[in-house]
Design a protein around this nucleic acid. Sequence first.
DNA 1: CAGTGTTTTTTCGAGGCTCGAAAAAATAGG
DNA 2: CCTATTTTTTCGAGCCTCGAAAAAACACTG
Lengths: 414, 414
Amino acid sequence: MSVGIRHDDLRRRNRAMVIGAVRRGGQPSRTEIAATTGLSHSTISAISADLIAEGILTEGKPNEAGLLKRGRPQVGLGLNPKAATVMTVVLSLNFLSVAVIDYAGQVVAEEQRRLDTLTMSREALIGECTAIVRRRLEDPDLDVRSVARIALGIQGITDTKARAMLWSPITPQTDIAFADILEAEFGIPATMENDCNMMAVALRWRDPERYRDDFIAILLSHGIGMGLVLKGELFTGTHSSGGEFGHMIHRPGGALCRCGRRGCVEAYAGNYAIWRNARQLGEDTEPAADVSDAQMRTLAATARENDGPEREAYRKAGEALGYGLGSLFALIDPAPVAMVGVSAAAFDLIEPALREAIAQTAGGQHSKSISFDTEPNELPLIREGCAMRALTFVDQEIFAPGVQARAGAGKNVA
Amino acid sequence: MSVGIRHDDLRRRNRAMVIGAVRRGGQPSRTEIAATTGLSHSTISAISADLIAEGILTEGKPNEAGLLKRGRPQVGLGLNPKAATVMTVVLSLNFLSVAVIDYAGQVVAEEQRRLDTLTMSREALIGECTAIVRRRLEDPDLDVRSVARIALGIQGITDTKARAMLWSPITPQTDIAFADILEAEFGIPATMENDCNMMAVALRWRDPERYRDDFIAILLSHGIGMGLVLKGELFTGTHSSGGEFGHMIHRPGGALCRCGRRGCVEAYAGNYAIWRNARQLGEDTEPAADVSDAQMRTLAATARENDGPEREAYRKAGEALGYGLGSLFALIDPAPVAMVGVSAAAFDLIEPALREAIAQTAGGQHSKSISFDTEPNELPLIREGCAMRALTFVDQEIFAPGVQARAGAGKNVA
DNA sequence: CAGTGTTTTTTCGAGGCTCGAAAAAATAGG
DNA sequence: CCTATTTTTTCGAGCCTCGAAAAAACACTG
């Protein structure tokens, strides 16, 4: 349950905080870190001396910042790229990509591969993942011992502990404990993350101004996914990655969803649903296995040209998303939204109906003030998110080690 | 942003933890506290010596626990009832109640009053609240200086900081900063809490076995409200108390809701909605201002007797609640549910349709394993929740004081 | 009823951590 | 070259927690 703070936790946490301040960027000086953390200069000085001696941080070149002030110039601290390495593995429909990233966040190597994920056996899928990781680890340019963490990202549902994929639309296989498998194979700590959660993580690092403590990342792709950051923390379900926005119910008993149920938001707003409606196939039509991005772009172009069934299909998608967001906003209050994925490029077709629907809901009071941003390409976001996830793990668990995670400290509901 | 841990925070947090362990009950001995907190016996000994010297804790009578073991008997620690006092003020439809509670959680005085909240002016409403508090404070049996905190509970939406009521169904008035008003009036720290959140808090204290880290409390009353505990913490919106389960959209464009919008869960499951359907008044009929508990009990009795419109009304309520819960479970995964309020007594009429609906949703996979509990009386729960909220505030902020809440310490999304 | 064993609680010195103040370092301006 | 200014480091003081050992409080035994 609730657990005390031991004396050794103190240094550990403050170390993690200094590293975090440096990772957040801007080559902060010791003085700046002291200011933002509220700790004394002496403490920051001591901690950063340690971290530099251990090769985790480096002192930047002085005079780097340009403008010269009167006194002793600040010396910026940066992450030592050689301090460690992490790997990201992103598994999406028919596509596997891996990247090696240095401690400062720069990609140092990558590899991509086309697969037929929908028909592959369990063993083949696992085999491809371990094989691609092994190839990267065998790269002579890479010091294997420096690889401190592997983060996998996958479309689908993962468990809360980020160990296993529970279900995924990209494969009929279920319950694959990828994290455990990779750990056993390579002896490197690994996690299995949900794609949309990683999108949210990446957005937060990319644009901390806009995506700070509360925001929503929605993936508009074949399926509909969501990553949610609330009060500065990634929101997950109690047992799974959660946030299955696409499977909130839009119309009870409505259109057939890929998940086999009826009336989910996705059954109106997923690519296959927009496709189905645009082709006027009827709501009971079995969802198409895949609609290519090119097909979707053509569809959007047609919809923009004339007011036919294509435009109506996007309208219906907007309506479903709007009512879904409205229900979500009833629970969490409105927040900035990032629309990601190929259909985000067609957001102009979606937005009017979406806003109209939101206006009919509890979030509607501030309907106009809700801001949307679009980002058509989800894969780079997922990879960035995985990278940051892996790197912050190294920051916190390896470079600021201590008593193992004493979860729940100080938690108290009342 | 993220903030370091100062040396003085250490003792403060560990003090709070010892107090928390004692409040959680069972008259724990120092040894037991040391075990559950992971701190050393020496530390616990030192801290509890302080707390006893300060009159916050008391040593229980030895031999109290009955069964005698071999060595030196454990001496249980308890809360000193005289250490402080808190007040709870619960404002609900046409009803105002206040209670004075000692530090150990026992009610030492109370007072209740009928009001006509729906027609009262802003000033009158505020006046009644301050007046009833003043009367209790002027009670000669009460040492005013001991009153350390006032917690108000109100049906409706409050702000995240628990300072103000933003909107409430019990009054046409909006945006009343009750917490600030009471603080200014009496110089005692106060908070303004959402009723359903307090229900959840109370349930957690009442039955920590069942209501531990993840559960849902749903108020089935004139309106539909929700209190949500996720990962051990009370869930609130980004700006408001949030969790407006009753205003998730069940059927876009559907039945008229008390909030003026259409198709909300509440427009099918609130007392007025059940009433409207039972009387076959049509979904556009303006919601009745109030339906008495007695009327609802009669309705439920009729519904149990024969399969008429009354039974159908409860069925529709169950369906709306089920689909709503299904959407909620898509976001947070299934969790135990407590149904509270007068219509919880008619849960037998609601449950079949509710379970059937959930089975059609993403949460449906575990439809049968979702467990429901009922509690017809919400007011005692709300008061208990307010009491615990106020008491834990005293525990943490007054008896374990230190640097003022350095929020966000260590929060990191990636 | 005194001695022994057992368990809880307190005491005490050691080791760590952060802090404030002062010193040292590094630079611009005159 | 000297002074003002700002950053960074050094150093002693003050807490806090810890482990080990001592003290306390009881049950059991013969």
